[in-house]
Every structure is written in structure tokens, then in C-alpha cells.
Design a protein around this nucleic acid. Sequence first.
DNA 1: CCCCCAATAT
DNA 2: GATATTGGGG
Length: 227
Amino acid sequence: MLSPRVVRPQPHDGAASAGSSSSRRHMVDRVSEWELGLPSAAELTPVSQPLIPPALAAAFGIGPADALSSPVDAGFLHDSPTSHLTLRFDEYDEEDEEEGEGETDDAAAPGGRRGGGGGGKKARMVWTPELHHRFVEAVEHLGEKGAVPKAIVRLMNVDGLTRENVASHLQKYRLYLKRSSPGAAAPAPPPPPFFPRFDVQRPHQDSANRSGYCAYPYVSYQKLGCD
DNA sequence: CCCCCAATAT
DNA sequence: GATATTGGGG
């Protein structure tokens, strides 16, 4: 119901949109170990479990009914009220466009990849605000020097996310940064070519609202100075 | 091989 | 319009 105009699913995909407040925090301090010493086991852990938007759930006062989780999850990839992102893909159907409403579920990795098996269905990735947020944080924390596709993908650790995906997005992101920065004096600051999508911001709250939304290394750490 | 960027295609 | 893909160069 409140799902934003979801793209166009076919098998069944969608995503979990979570409204979250993003705080502009720059904590480039001691997160080094995280940057370079990623635990192998953790870093390889795929992330993808559908879940109810925490904000929505909270707003509606409904419990975290995660009854739709997969059979084998339950208790282990769940730590923060907001942790994990799901890739949402869109299938580009030749022509024809329909106004459908889909929702929920995640996408799978490129099935037919490497091996010639065939049947690989490619889907256009959708950079949802949450994903973009994660992307940005990864880039920022990696530093201008280390923010390369491989590292970013590694840090984001979103299942299904490929280096190409990130590379493409990174390019756009960099252009965006270049445009915005020196343009401080620009008489005509163009709107952010980025994600002006639905609002990711919950109704402005006055003071004392530091909703933590520290969706990060959902795997093992939770400190990371998310404030 | 990987990265980067510009251009182009879907 | 947003992503993906390609091509040239480092």
C-alpha cells in the first residue's frame, strides 16, 4: 500500500523499503580494521532476507512480523532494527509496459553466469535509497583512494551486487560530486541528479530525534561509531 | 587484471 | 531516465 511505485516485477521480486533517517556523520577514525581486516566468513555472508520496513512497522505499531523469512534464518542475520538490504531488480521486458504493483521479495544473483549454463536472465538493478546510502557510506569510509569498485562491493556485501553495478554507479556518483562541489558559487545549482526518488526521510522531527540508522557491517559489528 | 572516464546502447 | 555495456588509455 505504501509501496512506492515499484518497478515491474515478473516472477516476484521487490524489495524492502525502509524509511530511515540518515544522519550526516563523518566518523573516519578508527574503523580501519573494518576497512582492511574483514573477516572472511563474515564478508562472504550473503545478505538477503526480506523484512518489513522498520519505520513503517514502528509507525503502525505492528510487530516485526517476520514470518516471511526464509526457513533458515531466524536468528542470525538479525541484529539491528535495520540491517540488511535487498537488491531489487527490474526486468526489462521488450516492450509493453504495464502498471503493476509488486512488492516484497528479493532478487537472486545472476543465475546463468559463468559456465554457460544458460539461462541467465539479467535484470536491471535498482538503486534504492538504502542501497545508495550504503554505497555512499562505503565510499566515504574507504577514502578517495580506496573507493574502487571491488572494495566497495566487498564492503557493501550485498548479495548479487556486482563490480560492474558498482562501477557504473560510482561513475555517476563521482560526476555528481564534481558538479556539486565547485558549484558552490554556481548561480544555478542543478538538482541532485541522484535519487530524488520517494522520500527517505520520515516526517521531520524536531529535536531529540536521533533515530539510529546505522546500517552497516550488519555482520559482526555494530559499534562503528554510528553516533 | 583492475581502474577510470566518455560515449553509447538498452 | 536510469543502468549496462563498450572502447580507449593508464
